[in-house]
Write a protein that binds this DNA or RNA. Structure first.
Lengths: 337, 337
DNA sequence: CTGTTAGCGCATTCAT
DNA sequence: ATGAATGCGCTAACAG
């Protein structure tokens, strides 16, 4: 690794002072266009890259964004991560990952440890820790800015949100359009905002389709495959069993399909099944799962861009709506008989 | 965010010099046990955390480890990532993620950009970029230490490796013990080391079981679900079709199951299928997939520990063998008739 | 074994 | 619109 090119070298090459180079690099005003050009050229010729630590030490900014998560879905997370990475690298920030445990106390402790160690300039939170009151309170105390991906409370703060209620509504309407009247719903983990929205959308869909809500057709799950298996066992034991099951995520939907196939029911002929998330698995199981696609990459990217904008200008930082897409595949079909 | 506690404050509190505190913090020798204790206590009382940027600027170490990857499997990656994070945080290092494109030129360019921007003290490489000659050559030029996870060439360098050949051998023996004689193999992407090992293990298993190798039963895949679908279509179109298919990873195995079920074959009664990797999906499809578990978390952690050890002492840094485990599930069963 | 001095590379005053 | 001096918090080299 040859000797480092420093800002001083660039200044010398461009025939200006260090400070002027610094100004150009940081897009500060008060630089004539031609000096700016000279500096830019010198930077490129020398292949100058500012030294992160020096910048951060002198400027008391770390140029670090930390992504806090405890969501177990690898594909969801990887999508968000890639988006955060992209936004950060575009803005010359670095990304730190901070996996957290599940209980409130450890969430706060883990976040505090990261903040103490790394001094990030801002945080991106993914569900469900977006809804941890203790964590949000502590972050407010520490006055560290954060952006949320799909938080329960979308009225405050910045980040991204999807109309999950509407997506669930659309899904129920899709089932109704196939002739289904006994549509079951497997709820997600009660602590997640997503569970509530999707349940609400389910009920709104039923109402719109003129189907009476039947509490017997709604079972509590917790987003895991196993909870989907349990829920499906209960639903398929019912006297009058449903002709369609809308599970609040793909993992639970896979559990429902597992139980159906084990009982020699055909999907979708005997039972339509659909999920939520569009995980890669949803395309790989048989039959391929009808589900809702979330733009995880864009969600991570946009949340981060909002965060960085608010770091520059605390006035900015909005809650951005992102679109979803229904993916109609083989696991849903017309009701039989 | 109260005012920062600095090393100077700790020194004052402990009644020693800054340098002594520094020595204690960095586990340097030449500190009396009782002074070390005094310092440790002061650190704890003041909740002192060293400032990353200052340390790195002064010491010309970045305390950064970058994980370079272009592997598309989210669950594999998340496992490795968590392991790297754990090892880094245990040693007070930070982890950077560096997703890379697929072609050689971009791999090198992406890595160079990261190195220029972040000056990591070391790198962890995951397959298949562990086997990119251009990248490895460039890293050697830059003299930046790196550890590999499952590299093709395990005779040099440091990192972790699993006996994939043996695992594949075991899998074929498992199928043979169920009475299978016509055992097909779907090869992985030709550029991956894993593909070669698993194929070798397949052939060794056949030989051990006294089964003649039949080239017609070996089809090229590329690790994707779709390539598994194509391979399965070819295999099931065969005059004398196989009674078992060993796919070189779970995604391709899922593709095989898809085709089998679409053709109204029962798995495992009419066709046994097995994969490699033990992705979460393998437990969620029907029937649950027999596969090989790789300890991805441990692999990431151990590779990183070796890397950090070699950063401290260039003499160290070994290639560590990690164990695998066969997961026998419902997708493999006794041969019929 | 411990302390003193200098300086890492940059941004930030405050000059001009 | 530009430049010179000062210091961010820490470690390195040396001195004691």
């Amino acid at each position: 690794m040859a000797v480092r090119v420093r800002i001083e070298d660039v200044a010398a090459a461009a025939g200006v002072s260090m400070k002027t180079v610094s100004r150009v690099l940081n897009h500060e005003p008060n630089v004539r266009e031609d000096t700016r050009l000279k500096v830019t050229r010198a930077v490129e010729e020398l292949k100058y890259t500012p030294h992160l630590s020096a910048r951060s030490l002198a400027g008391s900014k770390s140029f670090l964004v930390a992504l806090l998560y405890n969501n177990p879905s690898a594909s969801y997370l990887m999508g968000v991560i890639e988006g955060v990475l992209k936004a950060c690298s575009d803005e010359n920030y670095h990304t730190l990952l901070c996996p957290l445990e599940d209980d409130e106390a450890r969430i706060v402790a883990g976040a505090e440890a990261l903040i103490a160690r790394s001094q990030p300039d801002g945080l991106v939170l993914t569900p469900p820790i977006t809804d941890s009151p203790a964590l949000l309170a502590r972050l407010a105390e520490l006055e560290i800015p954060y952006a949320c991906v799909s938080p329960k409370d979308q009225s405050h703060g910045m980040g991204v949100a999807m109309d999950e209620t509407r997506a669930a509504y659309d899904m129920v309407m899709h089932l109704a359009s196939l002739g289904h009247r006994r549509i079951a719903h497997v709820i997600g983990h009660p602590a997640h905002g997503a569970s509530g929205w999707r349940l609400t959308g389910y009920r709104q869909g039923l109402e719109r389709a003129g189907i009476k809500f039947d509490p017997a057709l709604v079972v509590q799950g917790e987003f895991s495959f196993e909870s989907g298996v349990r829920a499906a066992s209960a639903l398929l034991d019912l006297e009058r069993r449903p002709s369609a099951v809308f599970a609040a995520n793909d993992d639970m939907a896979a559990g429902v399909i597992r139980v159906a196939l084990e009982r020699n029911l055909r999907v979708p002929e005997d039972l339509s099944v659909c999920g939520f998330d569009d995980t890669p698995m949803s395309r790989q199981i048989f039959p391929a799962l009808t589900t809702v696609q979330q733009p995880t990459y864009e969600m991570g990217r946009i949340a981060t861009l909002e965060l960085l904008a608010s770091i520059r200008n605390p006035e900015s930082g909005r809650m951005v709506r992102v679109p979803y897409a229904l993916k109609l595949r083989q696991s849903t079909g017309p009701v039989q008989e």
